[in-house]
Simulated scan of single mutants.
Amino acid sequence: MYEYIIGNITDFTEDRLVLETNHIGYSILVPVTTLANMQGVKDKVKIYIHQHVREDEISLYGFGSKEERRLFRDLIGISGIGPKAAMGILSSFTLDQFIGYLNASDEKAISTAPGIGKKTANRLILELKDKYKHHLSTSDGNTGSSATASTAKEAVEALEALAYSYSEALQMVEFVYIDGMELQDVIKKALAVRASYDQ
């Protein structure tokens, strides 16, 4: 069982990287978010590994942090969630975003991940919410940026009423939302950013 591998990245594809150490190249499946952070890095990197064994295949899944790997393992421990679906979730959201959606019981947001319907999203919330309710942000401590507060949710609903799709509205709000903002300010700023983007 691998804990982590330290080496140099020698190749990328859309869903994996090749990590070389001691003249061995390991092909490792990684979330899109991890790939984005690793591209252009020339120094040695540490990738936390989950080894998945099936009858006909042994695969290595890699993550930028132990917390991401823990979430992956918790996800695949849920009935009906395989490695592919778990990687889709980790590629769609940052760790803090996903945990924010769990804590807010936001099945609509979670169901925007590929292969995850509302029924599955509700099962994820049911099985994981309590496990992650005390999670603190691993970056700047501001979990409010994942648009999980009630004000942010109301802003998303208001933008939906203005004919934006749920995923569009969610992205707009997440881009501008800061914990403690007033509802009208969130909506105004989201619309202003969208307007400048559309020009």
Rank of each mutant, 00 (worst) to 15 (best):
A36Q: 14
K188D: 11
V186G: 04
T13S: 14
F98W: 01
L29V: 12
T13D: 14
E107D: 14
I28C: 03
S167A: 12
T94W: 09
K108R: 10
F93R: 00
L19G: 01
M1Q: 09
I76M: 05
P83L: 11
I24L: 15
M181Y: 06
A109F: 05
F93N: 04
I110Q: 06
H23A: 13
E160P: 08
A121D: 12
I78D: 03
L191V: 03
R123F: 02
E154R: 13
T13F: 00
A109N: 04
K188Q: 08
A192N: 12
L126H: 11
Q171F: 01
G77D: 13
P114I: 05
I47T: 07
G115E: 11
R73A: 09
L35M: 11
K42C: 09
I5K: 09
R70D: 05
G88H: 02
T112E: 05
E67F: 08
S59R: 11
A158H: 05
Q51C: 08
L159D: 08
L95M: 14
Q199Y: 06
G100N: 03
E3M: 07
V32H: 02
S165H: 06
T94M: 06
M181K: 03
A192L: 13
A147F: 08
E14I: 11
V32L: 13
I5Q: 02
E20L: 04
Y48W: 04
D179S: 11
L90S: 07
L126R: 10
Y48P: 01
I116D: 01
E160W: 00
E57S: 12
L170V: 03
K189P: 05
R194C: 01
T148W: 03
G40L: 05
T21W: 03
L170M: 11
S196E: 12
L128K: 09
I125A: 12
E20G: 00
V41G: 12
I76W: 12
L95N: 05
F12V: 13
A85V: 15
T94K: 13
A36M: 14
V45A: 06
S91P: 09
G40V: 11
Y61A: 01
N142P: 00
Q97W: 00
K118D: 07
Q51L: 15
Q199E: 10
I187E: 03
A86R: 07
I5N: 02
E182Y: 10
N103F: 01
A169R: 01
I58H: 12
